[in-house]
Nucleic acid binder design. Structure first.
Lengths: 200, 200, 200, 200
DNA sequence: ACTTAAACGAGACGGTACGTCCCGTCTTTGC
DNA sequence: GCAAAGACGGGACGTACCGTCTCGTTTAAGT
């Protein structure tokens, strides 16, 4: 059951979509989050502002879509143990967070709080998808007999992503040390979970 | 040897200082971070804009000063064990982060990336002071013989503050559950440190 | 010798022509000259914008054609005397000017100055045709012996149409009084012409 | 009884007023009425757009004020006879109309119809003031015994200004011939008035 | 008391970006 | 090849803030 409105009128030009996303990413890299303007994106993309606002309701949505686009968050491969699964999840998180400049991440995070629609989209696109991954990993551990009961996935999610987030965004730590940090995080979360200290 | 320029002319009115801080906090609560304007603060405070810019170089500095004001980060009391000390540090962090609305925290974090001066101040006022606390706690554990060598304080700081940060700012979790989370965090960090898995 | 391009392809739909003209007039009445948009005309007419721009090069031309359409300016019937002929011409002018809302007339007049092509068409469609009428009337008066020489037709044209124009467009006078005014104008122009005060 | 609000805050800078008016006039001359943009005026005047919109509610008001500014319409000197007085009035009208480019006059006239406030101002600033002049001239003629009763000033105003208006704005006639036309107009109006054909 | 100099409320200033609107053109699908 | 529908590049509009700059007034400290 495709969208019935697709049949009428000139269809959206997908080259315009790409040009906007591309220009946004380039300019974010060149001028930073705070220095990005919609006019500059339009000019760089060779596109009218109307074409941008036809796709995105606000500047913030445009940036969000250009940066987050498709944080695929594929279903995680079973690595055989909770410890190994957690390590894999951590690496994925680290890879995603490291894919955008920190000032952009911080800017987006702030925008999420001033735009309800964006907040919902952020939650759906990113948080809930990642939570499913965490849930899956925990369920496996229960199935294996490593855990007696499934701990709260949201709590585990915070334990996993938090330190990496803090390292990059708040402490402005060296990105090269993120892999080491990810290992330590996986280690510490596995330790605390396996002692049974975290409630469901 | 005070600033000689202070002696001449009309002195700053400390009531103006308070009015600005107060108006800023009120308006942050009412309209949120993104909705705050300097004109509105001036009006609410019954103050001219010049009086604000005489005190703060930018809007961001004004907000920073009004919100962060005095994250005291007092020296931590020795609780007798690494596990207990980490728990205390975690509670402190949780208390500080919970004292401001999340949208304000996110907004300030974004500003830190577009304003070098603010970034430096944020680092000095907040990060480095907290790092000293972490370092002190770790040193005590070494002195007690709990740890063979002092792990990297920055890494430990990320492990401690990260999950709470993520819970509040990213996952938009229930603030009432933060104390529980803080306990879990302290537990997990103590576990991984005591196994010696974290390098110095 | 018709246009050879007319023979190929689908012929223009004359219903579309009428729909455009009709929608234009309706919307001019409802929203006024300044509030008219091509999109609105297309929507109201149930027509694509391309169909409009296939017929008219600009929005202004569209309006012009819809409003002026056929200012017939038929050859004037000989009324027997200069005085009577002038009165007839004046009534015709008054009738034409009164047929469109004043804001539309003012808008069109302004457009004539920003669009050379429209200016030319305005001149051909309206001014020159009217001038021929004036010239004819003056020539008759010469033939009758009422005038010794033919005065400058452009000057007489200005004397005849000017007051009615000013009354409606500038002074925003009562349209019901235009017939009276037209009589007075004819009277005054006849008077000055018959005294021989106007040069050829 | 001066404006009580003058005392508070920074006063308007009259140099800014002049810069705006000057830039508007220059650009009207260079690019014509249709080519004028508010941004261009702001840039040329070395002024922010806000400074313009603080003074004028719309672009149209700005242009109106810059062009019409002060059509002084001083009380007319008594020339001794109705015929001579009318000639003087005609010359004044001709001078005023000739002081601005025709495209600007046409543009302003159109604006008057899409902006009620501007229409009112146009009427007060220009039409009513001129009408007083006409009324005064007619009253003098009555006092002199040239006229039995005072004819309708609005009608006479239309008779006087109309032909000059039509000559310049509609017929796009040679501006050099306006003085001749003005004389003819005065002649014809005097003729018709003195025959008593125009009602009060 | 009188001068000096800075701080004060108010609000205008130059500048920049926003999001909207409209023009005239182009690109689909269908007839 | 015309039709409706609607996306396209371009560009102006009027609004909203920012951080600065006058105004005239008020408040101390130093004479």
């Amino acid at each position: 059951m495709p969208n019935p409105r697709q049949a009428v009128g000139r269809p959206r030009d997908s080259q315009v979509d790409h040009a906007i996303v591309r220009a946004t990413r380039e300019l974010l890299g060149e001028r930073g989050y705070a220095g990005l303007t919609v006019d500059a994106v339009a000019t760089r993309a060779g596109v009218g502002k109307a074409a941008i606002y036809r796709r995105y309701a606000t500047k913030q949505e445009m940036i969000f879509s250009a940066v987050v686009h498709d944080m695929g968050e594929q279903p995680p491969p079973d690595a055989g143990s909770l410890r190994a699964d957690l390590a894999a999840v951590c690496q994925t998180i680290a890879g995603q967070l490291g894919s955008a400049p920190t000032d952009v991440l911080a800017g987006l995070l702030a925008d999420v709080y001033s735009d309800t629609a964006l907040g919902a989209r952020f939650s759906e696109t990113f948080l809930q998808r990642e939570r499913l991954v965490v849930t899956e990993v925990l369920d496996r551990a229960v199935a294996r007999g490593e855990l007696a009961a499934r701990p709260d996935p949201a709590t585990v999610q915070a334990l996993l992503m938090g330190p990496i987030f803090a390292w990059l965004l708040i402490l402005m730590g060296d990105p090269d040390k993120v892999p080491d940090l990810a290992r330590t995080v996986a280690e510490s979360v596995a330790a605390v979970l396996l002692t049974g200290a975290v409630a469901g």
